[in-house]
C-alpha cells in the first residue's frame, strides 16, 4: 500500500490550476497555428493572430488566458493500492483549488444558483473520482468557463435516430449557438450510457488532446466526419464567418438501455485550460 500525503495533493493542485489558466494546452496552440494558415476568411485569420498573441502574453505576464477562469472540474483516478494520509482526497483537492485561485489571482466564478451570492473562493469544485488498479493518483483539471458550458446540451434521442440523429442534433445545435460559445470550439460528445453518464463521457472526451485520434478507427472516422459537417456551417472564428468553426470533435461512447440513445454535447471554447498530474 503506497501512501500519498494530503499536503502534496494540496500543493500540486494549487500549482496546476494556476498553470492551466496561464498556459494554453500545447495541442490547442498548435491547432490555432495550423488553423491560421488554412482559415479562408480574413477576419478569421485576424482572430487566430489575436489568440496567438493572447497565449504568448498570458504565458509572459501570468495574466489568465481568459478572465473567466471557470468552475474547477477534476477527474481523479485513485489507485486501489494507494492511501491518502493527513486529510481527505476531496478536501485536499478543494483546498489546493482554493489556494491556487486565491494566490494565482484567478476569478472566483461560483455562486448560489438562485440567490447568486458568490461563494468567495471558487468552491465547491466538481470532483469525479474513479477507483482504478495500481498505486498511483492521477488528477486531471479542467477550468470550465460559463459561456461554452451554457451552450452545452444533453438529449435523449430515439434509438431509431442512430448516428444520423446524433450528427443532426450536434450540427443543428452548433448552428444555433453560433458565435456565443467563443468558436473555434472543441466538441466533447458523449453517446450512450444513461442520462447522467452521457455528459460525463462528453466532458471526459475533452481531455483527449487534438493530436490524439480515438483508439478505435471507426470512432476516429466518425469524429472526422462530424468535424467536417460542423465546419461546413461556415460560422468561423468568433462567428464572423470562415471554415474553422471547430478545432476537433472528441467522442466517447458507452452501451445504453435498449430503449434509449442518450447524447451529450459539451462545448469547449478555444481557451482550453487543462492540466494533469500524477502523484
Amino acid at each position: 500500500m503506497r501512501t500519498i500525503h494530503a499536503s502534496d495533493i494540496i500543493e500540486q493542485v494549487a500549482a496546476m490550476v494556476v498553470r492551466a489558466n496561464r498556459i494554453l494546452r500545447p495541442d490547442v496552440l498548435a491547432a490555432i497555428d495550423q488553423s491560421k494558415e488554412r482559415e479562408t476568411s480574413a477576419s478569421g485569420r485576424d482572430i487566430f493572430g489575436q489568440l496567438q498573441e493572447n497565449a504568448a502574453l498570458a504565458r509572459a505576464t501570468g495574466l489568465p488566458l481568459c478572465q473567466d477562469t471557470g468552475m474547477a472540474v477534476f477527474f481523479v483516478e485513485l489507485g486501489e493500492d494507494c492511501r491518502i494520509k493527513g486529510g481527505g482526497l476531496r478536501e485536499g483537492i478543494t483546498e489546493g483549488m482554493r489556494r491556487g485561485y486565491k494566490d494565482g489571482l484567478l476569478r472566483k466564478s461560483v455562486c448560489d444558483p438562485l440567490t447568486r451570492k458568490n461563494t468567495g473562493d471558487n468552491s465547491p469544485a466538481v470532483i469525479h473520482i474513479d477507483l482504478v488498479a495500481g498505486d498511483k493518483l492521477k488528477i486531471s483539471f479542467l477550468a470550465k468557463g460559463g459561456g461554452s458550458e451554457n451552450m452545452s446540451r444533453v438529449t435523449m434521442l430515439s434509438p431509431a435516430q442512430g448516428w444520423q440523429g446524433v450528427k443532426d442534433f450536434v450540427v443543428n445545435h452548433v448552428a444555433e449557438a453560433g458565435p456565443n460559445p467563443c468558436p473555434p470550439t472543441i466538441l466533447g460528445i458523449g453517446i450512450g450510457g444513461s442520462f447522467e453518464l452521457a455528459p460525463i463521457l462528453a466532458k471526459k472526451a475533452l481531455l483527449r488532446p487534438l493530436d490524439e485520434p480515438h483508439p478505435e478507427p471507426e470512432i476516429a472516422r466518425m469524429e472526422q466526419e462530424l468535424l467536417a459537417e460542423v465546419n461546413a456551417l461556415g460560422i468561423g472564428p468568433m462567428g464572423l464567418g470562415g471554415n474553422v468553426t471547430c478545432l476537433g470533435v472528441r467522442i466517447n461512447m458507452a452501451p445504453c438501455h435498449i430503449a434509449s440513445l442518450p447524447l451529450a454535447v459539451n462545448v469547449q471554447c478555444h481557451s482550453v485550460r487543462h492540466e494533469e498530474v500524477e502523484l
Binding site: 495574466l63 478572465q67 489571482l105 484567478l106 451554457n150
Partner: peptide
C-alpha cells in the same frame, strides 16, 4: 460586459475579455 480577474500588483486590472451578451 466583463467580469475581470483580480488585478496583479502594478496593474489596473487582470484579464478582461468580454462575456456573452444575450
Amino acid at each position: 460586459y466583463v467580469g475581470p480577474s483580480p488585478a496583479p500588483e502594478g496593474r489596473p486590472i487582470g484579464s478582461a475579455g468580454p462575456t456573452t451578451s444575450y
